[in-house]
Structures are given as structure tokens and as C-alpha cells.
């Protein structure tokens, strides 16, 4: 076997069409007003957790809305559910419900018909 000294980089681009949009759709059904997010970042600016650990709730939900779930559980565990983000959202998005919905989705057993999303496979169904 040849030792190449390097490996082929994996694509970084979000492959929207190849992604699984099940959780994205479930989230937007539970919190329809999330569609009106204008990406202002008020939620992240005020976030209790995000001010001390790398956690960006605005980006997190944007990723979910593109069908990108890698590392989702680890990220969600950083949320302290204080609710400040909901107070500052100019679009009135129930961010707490958004977080809880995502946690519920992550907790659903695979048998419930929710395909295991990339990156969530190791943790789905454990709780």
C-alpha cells in the first residue's frame, strides 16, 4: 500500500439536494415563524452560553434549515434554556420551542421513521 502522506479532502460545500430535509421540515412545521428569520444575530449576541463557549444559535438553526445536522446534539447541549434569545428576537421567533423541538427530534428513536441524519447517528435514540 502506498503511503501518500495525505488524504483526499472531503467536500465542504453544503450539498443541498443530497441532504436529508426531514428534520428541517419537522422543525419548520413546529416553529413556522422560524422561516421569517432575517439573520440579525440578536439571539447569538445575547446568548448566555455563546458568550463563553463557541455556540451560535443563529448559525445552528440556519444549518438545520439547510439539512445540515452534523454535531447538532453537542451544540444543543450548550444551550442553557434561559430564554433571553426569545426576548430579543425582532421576528418573534419562539427560540426556546425551536431548541426543545430539535432536542425532541434528536431523542426520537430511529424506528419512528425519522432517518438518522449525518453526524447525529451516534447519539440518536439514546435518550
Amino acid at each position: 500500500m502506498v503511503d501518500w502522506g495525505y488524504t483526499i479532502n472531503k467536500p465542504r460545500a453544503i450539498a443541498y439536494d443530497a441532504n436529508d430535509h426531514t428534520w428541517e421540515n419537522a422543525l419548520q412545521e413546529a416553529v413556522p415563524v422560524l422561516r421569517s428569520c432575517i439573520g440579525c444575530g440578536n439571539c447569538t449576541a445575547t446568548c448566555t452560553a455563546g458568550n463563553f463557549v463557541p455556540f451560535n444559535i443563529r448559525k445552528l438553526q440556519t444549518l438545520v434549515r439547510r439539512g445540515e445536522y452534523a454535531g447538532l446534539r453537542k451544540e444543543l447541549d450548550k444551550c442553557m434554556l434561559c430564554g433571553k434569545c426569545r426576548l430579543v428576537c425582532p421576528r418573534g421567533i419562539n427560540t426556546r420551542k425551536m431548541i426543545v423541538t430539535l432536542k425532541r427530534l434528536l431523542a426520537q428513536p430511529v424506528a419512528a421513521g425519522i432517518p438518522v441524519a449525518p453526524g447525529a447517528a451516534s447519539t440518536a435514540g439514546q435518550r
Binding site: 460545500a13 453544503i14 450539498a15 439536494d17 448559525k59 440556519t62 444549518l63 439547510r66 445540515e68
Partner: peptide
């Protein structure tokens, strides 16, 4: 189409 979803900071492709 190729774009960047600038609110995520990663390239994206879509048909």
C-alpha cells in the same frame, strides 16, 4: 448553482 450561504459561511450547491 454555486453560492455561499453567507449566514453559515460555507459554499453551497443546489439544483
Amino acid at each position: 448553482m454555486k453560492t455561499e450561504d453567507t449566514l453559515i459561511g460555507r459554499p453551497m450547491k443546489m439544483e
